[in-house]
């Protein structure tokens, strides 16, 4: 078991609004959990709680069997590869240097990446087909390339779980599909994956577990088929959405009606 989340609730200090309430779930290796919700529902807040940056006021999070409250940043980071929504470094680090920073959780203070880390980073870049960019400043890459570099950084220290914050939101349509396919592949290799998205169709494409977050802290979790229902989608998005079975593609799609 990678994640065991028990009844956590969270509100920002000084704010009366509960971001999420009584949220519980479990996640095993190879499983995908998609967190679906409209903008501002608190998806990122939940992710930040799962990596220990924010501490829920109630409930417990167990990461690889240990309560996250008792773990150091490094111990948490050791298990987690975190892929941010977007990243805007002030300094023009090269892609290779950027990816190598993913090793931080395996390094002590005063140590730095060793030769084998360099080799591994280059190897990952090669597998991601961006080894030619290794020497380029990260900030000069396109959105899709940046995300690949970010994923490379997230996997370099061989974590158990990968967290993606809105992995598809800054990408063009083709890139979105590449990213979803990649996420599925990573899960198939044994990573537990948690991602946030506001596109219900992406959730259907990925399958696995789905959690929905709504305003006022409502949290529901279950299989994709159970959770993604037309009434619930209507409730979340305040818009009519249709679930259609498409035989040629052998999948259920979520599509909006004619405008």
């Amino acid at each position: 078991m990678i994640y065991q989340v028990e009844n956590i609730s969270f509100a920002y200090p000084g704010s009366s609004r509960t971001i999420y309430r009584n949220c519980s779930f479990e996640l095993k290796e190879g499983e995908i959990l998609s967190i679906l919700g409209p903008n501002g529902a608190g998806k990122s807040t939940l992710l930040n709680s799962l990596i220990g940056i924010l501490k829920p006021q109630k409930g417990n999070i167990f990461l690889a069997g240990r309560n996250i409250r008792s773990l150091t940043e490094k111990e948490i980071a050791r298990q987690i590869g975190y892929v941010q929504q977007s990243h805007n470094p002030v300094f023009a680090y090269t892609v290779l240097d950027f990816v190598l920073m993913g090793c931080a959780s395996t390094k002590n203070l005063f140590s730095r990446p060793a030769k084998e880390d360099h080799a591994r980073a280059l190897h990952i870049l090669e597998m991601f087909h961006i080894v030619h960019l290794a020497d380029k400043p990260y900030i000069y890459l396109s959105g899709g390339e940046q995300q690949q570099a970010m994923i490379a950084r997230a996997v370099i220290h061989q974590p158990k779980v990968l967290l993606f914050d809105e992995p598809t939101s800054h990408l063009d349509y083709g890139r979105q599909m590449i990213t979803l396919r990649m996420i599925k592949k990573l899960a198939a290799e044994g990573y537990a994956v948690i991602l946030t998205t506001h596109n219900p169709d992406h959730v259907l494409l990925l399958g696995g577990k789905v959690a929905t977050m709504e305003y006022e802290g409502h949290f529901s979790i279950g299989g994709a088929g159970d959770i993604i229902t037309e009434p619930r989608l209507a409730g979340i998005y305040q818009a009519q959405l249709h679930l259609l079975d498409i035989e040629e593609l052998d999948r259920t799609a979520c599509v909006p009606p004619k405008l």
């Binding site: 940056i53 490094k74 990243h87 959780s105 203070l109």
Partner: peptide, 24 residues
């Protein structure tokens, strides 16, 4: 000089640095 690489990580921003395992 010993912490130079960790200064790189700090320079990514507080949240990113923490997610990478740095005691910010």
């Amino acid at each position: 000089l010993g912490l130079a690489w960790w200064i790189n990580i700090l320079s990514l921003g507080e949240k990113d640095a923490q997610a990478l395992g740095a005691n910010v």
